[in-house]
Design a binder for these strands. Structure first.
Length: 487
RNA sequence: GCCGCUGUAGCUCAGCUGGUAGAGCACAUCAUUCGUAAUGAUGGGGUCGGGGGUUCGAAUCCCUUCAGCGGCACCA
């Protein structure tokens, strides 16, 4: 352990009775400094010696301690709050999705969950179109020879789902893999036809369905799955275009996060690692391009030295959710290696063929994970435009049913996801059930509303209701149902 | 993958030392037409995660396997 500590740094040792600890510290002097009612043992778990999976595992007992009882209580309340907004729990309660034994790490999307997914996808599609991306679609199952060329077969095979096909009568077995990433396929699209420098930058986007064989212990609801869909895109461009593409990307990302309810995010710039390809001169230029791009957008950033990929520097984007947790979602990576391996080129102004750079980038990361983050951020109370069930129109008496249906039909016509609840139940019961179900707007209709052609509108979380005329409701809710257009 | 724990009705859970399962909610039927977070009555529903073993007898004990949960490791 001492060898792992940088020279010149103090070595510290702590004693407590006959117990001793070699630790950076600081430690409390006596356990009496922790109030008896301000600590709690929380869990017990294995942990590798020195954090290294090849070393033996130790038992670790986890506990938390605070200055006083109230701080401990506040902490426990926060944990409860986090548990309440757990997307796995919300997913069940709101009937969004499920995962079952026969397909670990793969999501079965239910109607409500798929509605959210599509709303998010449609929104992203709109934003990308305006930002100059072309959407494509590439195969899920691809022959191993492509993965050998791209280098994945060697470097990433243990994480790939291998699909073997025994072609009858063909005496030869074809080995394919489910794609773990979209980049090699995107280069195939790029490679069709001769590209000119006038075609660059070429931005190819795909809501790419990927599969990775994640280790069993790492899966977690929607947050870490084996089958997922990236909001992926690859920008093919020249070295000179990287800076502008990067700045444009950061602006787009910031605007998307804002639309989705995340005001703040962090940027981390990962620079050249020890093991790398390419000249120092090139690395200087690439790192400077990313740094300038960030500055141009006016965002703060941190540098993570040596954490870049072997082929180029990258940016990671971490957003902060409503209860202060940080999630890494966006990424931007400069890659001159893949285009070389897969033979991408373009004809430059001088008539010669050159290698383009390839910029790997994603804003949400994956739809699955991002929906998990959205659910936890909003504790299930999604903004109107993303809510799977936006409006329930509930009758108070059955004589109101015809008007209920009329209102529902009119709402659907203006693009609102509305449904009728004309069950023979009390309005209290209906309000409770749909409130628990996180429906953002409940419209109640009794005889008074029928006569006046109005509705009684109640928003999730409010106890007040407001009376609105038929046309006013259509106009208001129709507008709210539209996805944000970007700031 | 590793350490620990868990797996009983759609959901949340009870079921002591082995004697072949129970509650609430949900669901169905009937009654109730009711003004903003639970109307009442009745009823249906479980090969106790899978496989094997011990035993006269296993949801309960043992082995094994799968999945999940909490961490650790991983996330080029």
């Amino acid at each position: 352990m001492i060898n792992r500590i940088p020279e010149g740094e103090d070595l510290r040792m702590y004693w407590h009775g006959n117990w001793q600890d070699f630790c950076r510290g600081p430690h409390l002097q006596t356990t009496g400094q922790v109030p008896a009612d301000a600590f709690k043992l929380t869990s017990i778990a294995g942990a590798y010696w020195l954090g290294d999976a090849s070393r033996p595992m130790l038992q670790r007992i986890y506990g938390v301690a605070f200055k006083n009882r109230d701080d401990l209580k506040a902490h426990l309340v926060m944990l409860e709050e986090a548990a309440k907004r757990d997307h796995r729990k919300l997913g069940r309660e709101m009937e969004l999705f499920h995962i079952q034994e026969e397909a670990p790490g793969m999501v079965f999307w239910h109607p409500n969950g798929w509605t959210i997914y599509r709303a998010l996808e449609d929104y992203m599609r709109g934003r990308l179109r305006v930002a100059g991306y072309k959407e494509i679609r590439t195969p899920q199952v691809v022959d191993r020879v492509l993965w050998e060329r791209s280098g994945h077969w060697e470097a990433y095979r243990e994480n790939m789902f291998i699909v073997e096909v025994d072609e009858d009568g063909a005496k030869e077995k074809r080995i394919n893999a489910l794609k773990p990433m979209n980049c090699p396929c995107h280069v195939q699209v790029y490679n069709q036809g001769l590209k000119s420098y006038r075609d660059l930058p070429l931005r190819l986007a795909e809501f790419g369905s990927c599969h990775r064989y994640e280790s069993s212990g790492s899966m977690h609801g929607l947050m870490r799955v084996r089958g997922f869909t990236q909001d992926d895109a690859h920008i093919f461009c020249t070295e000179e275009q990287i800076e502008k593409e990067c700045a444009d990307f950061i602006s787009l990302l910031a605007s998307v996060y804002k639309d989705l309810g995340f005001e703040s995010f962090e940027i981390k710039l990962s620079t050249r690692p020890d093991v790398r390809i390419g000249s120092d001169d090139t690395w200087d230029k690439l790192e400077a391009a990313l740094e300038n791009a960030i500055r141009a957008t006016g965002n703060a950033y941190e540098i993570d030295p040596g954490e870049g990929a072997f082929y180029g520097p990258k940016l990671d984007f971490k957003l902060t959710d409503a209860i202060g947790r940080k999630w890494q979602c966006g990424t931007f990576q400069v890659d001159g290696n893949t285009p070389t391996r897969l033979g991408a080129e373009y004809v430059a102004a001088d008539g010669d063929k050159h290698r383009p750079y390839m910029l790997h980038r994603a804003i949400l990361g994956s739809f699955e994970r991002f929906i998990g983050i959205l659910l936890e951020n909003y504790a299930g109370r999604l903004p109107f435009w993303l809510a799977p069930r936006q409006v329930v129109v509930a009758s108070i008496v059955s004589d109101a049913d015809p008007f209920v249906h009329e209102v529902v039909a009119a709402l659907q016509k203006v693009g609102v996801r509305a449904e009728a609840d004309i069950r023979n139940e009390k309005i209290n019961y209906k309000v409770r059930e749909h409130s628990v179900g996180k429906v953002p707007v409940i419209l109640a209709i009794g005889m008074k509303e029928v006569e006046e052609r109005t509705v009684s509108l109640r928003r999730l979380g409010d106890t007040q209701t407001q009376s609105l005329g038929f046309d006013a409701v259509m106009a208001t809710l129709g507008l709210e149902a539209l996805p944000p257009a970007g700031a």
